[in-house]
Design a protein around this nucleic acid. Structure first.
Length: 745
DNA sequence: TGGCCGTGACTTTTT
DNA sequence: GTCACGGCCA
């Protein structure tokens, strides 16, 4: 049976059709929000297959597992079940693809085939160890910030040596030192971090002609989604595979580039035509998602960015209702307002699952949650990693990880005495010393009695006993196949003592923990290893299945947890919302310092990225968009006055209704009695003073000299500010009496 | 050896 | 306000 090409093309616009029918050569599809991007990608894959290109020659790369799953599914539905050549399409995330590549070519890539993938918590532990080894004090050299700078280096494909060569100041040299020490720890633990997945793959493709040739031969057609968010390593990977045949088809939107902080290089998409002379560029500017007010307002906001490829965004849908821009007294009023709004929509028949609440920082979800819960509105927070962040789950996974990778001392150390089995800190120290002296891993050393001379007799028994069960588990892994994964996990949990059936009589928390472990067992039991690849009834060795399972767990993202079918309101960060759409979208906390974020106001480039983030949020809405801010917000337990985001002023008045509810302070039953919307902002008192003395403002005081405002608070009829003075330090002053002068702009 | 309690630091976004 | 770590006590 063949695939009817006319059906694939019939409901497409002209530019969409052009993109779908593009076959050979490089192409750049500039896909504005809501322009049918996913449709174009899936149709093109199906179109290629209809031309006789076998599916296994096509590689499609997305950003999240969820996007990959959706794409696979949609292509699948376009293809007749008995179509020859429909099997074997590769749809993967960059990280997933690279993890697989490194496993298949471990030796060539210079990694151990049993490598572990370290998540951010593991990275922090490794970095702390590295700083200690390098003789750096972690107060002066915060692990988090060291990791961030190392991450940047890795994304730019710099090795520790490259990095050192480029660092000529003291600070840079110290980071180079930490990078080197950190990398040694990863190596000795047979571990890679997220960035290494990309970096090692890029290096492999660049320097190993055999591997490169193999991939180039196999993947004749390469598609990359969200190309604006690729970093240098990803750029190298994509281009290396496509170099031989030049069939690189990328889709993206520079206006939705929101990952520069993670090394994404917007030039990859802006300079695509220079990298690929003769490339075809196809702009998709027509928006099919949102009503007129929303599209035009978003378009207007984003036009304030100077560094962009100007692109017209149009819609043929009706204007719809104007955007609601509301200001509330504080975050509780804000949450209450949002809840009322969503309830009203629900009463009009909009299902909960078509509503989303977006925010810049995760911390804002809490107040919203409280109010949603109190009001009985079903909701879910997009936090895919939440389950895997629980202590008991991390413990369980550490067991599995040290079983799969005996060199993983970080995992081993985590669980060697969890639950407690009489192997205390001093015992571990001694085993560690013995392991280091003999060049063995911790888990190895534990099983070797001859190395444990320094260990007290009683502890030695405990250590050897533990080593014995570990050896038994490893034996089961070596002899089993993929059908035994669930049983393996269940056995390890039981025999390790993590699972305690008697806990049913203990606290609610403990019962919850046990339930979580049970969930982990069933998840492992249901896991289908990707390399089984649809071959029904087949099996692969248990060791490989375990490795693939751990890999899939390590690569889950928050966005993966979003279930549009679940019938609940979704709460998530603006970042996680990329690529999604909802009938109704609420963006909260649109205040100066939050959006744009205070940590991202240093440069125009950062400000523009914040604006793109707001743009992404706005364009998630199909018909209803509510943008809220609070005039007072509690940050870190301190109530602070805020000023509205500059982005709000960029929404043209003809596309929005502005309401100020800040004087409804005492109306706390938040009832239906406030119909009398006030259209005008009364921009007096708190707002304008807060604006003049917002945190960061430089001021001069007659006695204390100059300083920087650190916070601003209304105090009844007066206002007080906390100022960090250069000479005398932190002072709290009453604005009305202090006679401060603002310095500079 | 293990658990508890107090103090200190810190919060952007995430594969 | 929250979390993580270190010190102290049982």
């Amino acid at each position: 049976m063949s695939l009817d090409q006319a059906t694939l093309l019939e409901d497409l616009t002209e530019p969409q059709r052009e993109a779908v029918c593009h076959v050979d050569g490089a192409a750049l599809v500039l896909a504005g929000p809501g322009s049918g991007k996913t449709r174009v990608i899936t149709r093109r894959v199906a179109y290629l297959i209809s031309l006789g290109v076998p599916a296994w020659q096509i590689l499609a790369v997305t950003f999240t597992n969820k996007a990959a799953a959706e794409m696979r599914d949609r292509v699948d539905r376009l293809l007749p079940p008995d179509l020859p050549g429909r099997r074997g399409l590769t749809v993967a995330t960059f990280h997933g693809f690279c993890a697989r590549l490194l496993r298949d070519h471990a030796t060539a890539a210079g990694v151990s085939p049993d490598y572990s993938i370290y998540d951010s918590a593991d990275q922090r532990a490794a970095m702390k160890q590295a700083l200690e080894n390098a003789g750096l004090d972690s107060t002066n050299w915060p692990p988090q910030s060291m990791l961030a700078q190392i991450s940047n280096a890795k994304n730019a494909l710099q090795s520790p040596d490259d990095f050192r060569a480029e660092s000529n100041d003291f600070h840079g040299r110290m980071i180079a030192k930490a990078y080197d020490a950190y990398q040694r720890i990863l190596e000795s633990n047979h571990a890679v971090d997220f960035d290494d997945l990309l970096r090692h793959s890029a290096r492999l493709l660049r320097f190993d002609a055999d591997v490169r040739g193999e991939l180039q031969d196999r993947f004749r057609y390469v598609l990359i989604d969200e190309y604006q968010d690729t970093n240098h390593a990803q750029f190298v990977i994509a281009n290396a595979i496509a170099a031989a045949h030049g069939n690189l088809f990328v889709v993206g939107d520079p206006d939705q580039s929101i990952y520069a902080w993670r090394g994404a290089d917007i030039r990859n998409i802006l300079d695509f035509e220079e990298h690929h002379p003769g490339a075809r560029t196809i702009p998709l500017g027509r928006n099919f998602r949102s009503t007129g007010h929303i599209v035009r307002a978003a378009s207007s906001v984003i036009s304030n960015n100077r560094r962009r490829k100007a692109k017209e965004l149009t819609t043929e849908l009706e204007d719809g209702s104007p955007i609601k821009v509301v200001r509330l007294a504080d975050e509780h009023q804000e949450a209450r307002h949002v809840v009322d709004h969503l309830r009203a929509l629900s009463e009009e028949g909009v299902p909960w699952r078509s509503m989303a609440i977006l925010y810049r920082v995760n911390a804002l979800s809490r107040v919203l949650e409280d109010h949603l819960r109190r009001e009985g509105i079903p909701y879910a927070i997009a936090r895919g990693t939440a389950f895997y962040d629980r202590k008991e789950i991390r413990d369980a996974l550490a067991y599995l990880r040290m079983l799969a990778n005996p060199a993983d001392d970080v995992a081993f150390r985590r669980i060697v005495n969890t639950p407690t089995r009489g192997i205390g800190e001093s015992t571990i120290k001694r085993v560690e010393a013995a392991a280091a002296a003999s060049g063995r891993s911790l888990s190895d050393a534990c099983g070797d009695e001859s190395l444990l001379g320094e260990v007290a007799t009683r502890s030695r028994k405990a250590v050897l006993g533990f080593a014995r069960i570990v050896a038994e588990w490893r034996r089961e892994i070596a002899g089993g196949d993929s059908t035994g994964l669930g049983d393996l996990v269940s056995r390890v949990l039981r025999e390790s003592g993590l699972e305690r059936p008697e806990a049913a009589f203990e606290s609610e928390e403990e019962r919850q923990r046990q339930a979580n472990l049970g969930e982990l067992v069933s998840a492992a039991g249901d896991f289908v290893p990707p390399s089984l690849d649809g071959s029904e009834g087949g099996t692969i060795p248990l060791a490989i299945a375990l490795r693939e399972y751990l890999e899939s767990v390590a690569l889950v993202s928050d966005a993966d947890a979003i279930d549009s079918e679940s019938g609940v309101v979704t709460l998530m960060t603006l970042h996680a919302a990329k690529g999604l759409e909802y009938h109704s979208v609420t963006i909260v906390g649109v205040e100066d310092g939050l959006l744009p974020h205070s940590r991202a106001r240093e440069s125009d480039a950062e400000l523009e990225e914040e604006r793109r983030l707001f743009f992404v949020g706005m364009t998630r809405a199909e018909r209803d968009l509510l943008v809220a801010s609070a005039s007072i917000r509690t940050v870190r337990g301190m109530r602070q006055a805020t000023i509205t985001s500059q982005f709000l002023a960029e929404i043209p008045d003809e596309h929005c209704e502005r309401h100020d509810f800040t004087d409804r302070w005492h109306d706390d039953d938040g009832g239906d009695d406030d119909d009398g919307y006030q259209i005008e902002y009364d921009d007096d008192s708190v707002d304008s003073l807060a604006g003049a003395y917002s945190p960061g403002t430089v001021v001069r005081h007659a006695q204390f000299g100059t300083g920087v405002v650190s916070s601003f608070m209304p105090r009844g009829k007066v206002h007080s500010v906390i100022v960090d003075f250069k000479v005398v330090g932190r002072k709290t002053l009453v604005l009305e009496y202090a006679n401060l002068q603002r310095v500079g702009g």
